[in-house]
Amino acid sequence: MTDVEASPATEHEHHLHGHHADAGHDGEHGPHDAVSDNRYIVIAVILAVITAAEVAASYIDLGAVFIPLLLFMMAVKFFIVASFFMHLRFDNRVFTWLFYTGVVLAVVVYVIALLTFRFFEA
């Protein structure tokens, strides 16, 4: 870790560019104060309910709706965990960009690969 204890001059520059003012605020309090423990429990209950719905759906014959519905519920759970438990909703947008670049790239690239295998035609 390069650890520069800034001289007065560089500290001045920090303020000029406003980097550090944001950093201190964000790093120490920013994302975490947004959600209380009780809300985490509510979120977990929602996740549990969706999971129950998923399992229930797999026992009922829903016909053509079944797979899209399950994929939708899966995506909802994914977003809830990423947004709330992983704090992406409250954190700096850079993290969201970095992570979803990976997610979207993975989905697009592998879906195209499966398309060339005619996976979705069966």
């Binding site: 650890d3 204890e5 550090h20 950093a23 850079v94 970095l98």
Partner: peptide, 17 residues
């Protein structure tokens, strides 16, 4: 943690990035 005046262009933690 202890580098109070640590310079960071995005104001974000290196580790978290």
């Amino acid at each position: 943690g202890h580098g109070e005046a640590h310079h960071s262009s995005l104001g974000l933690s290196n580790t978290k990035l």
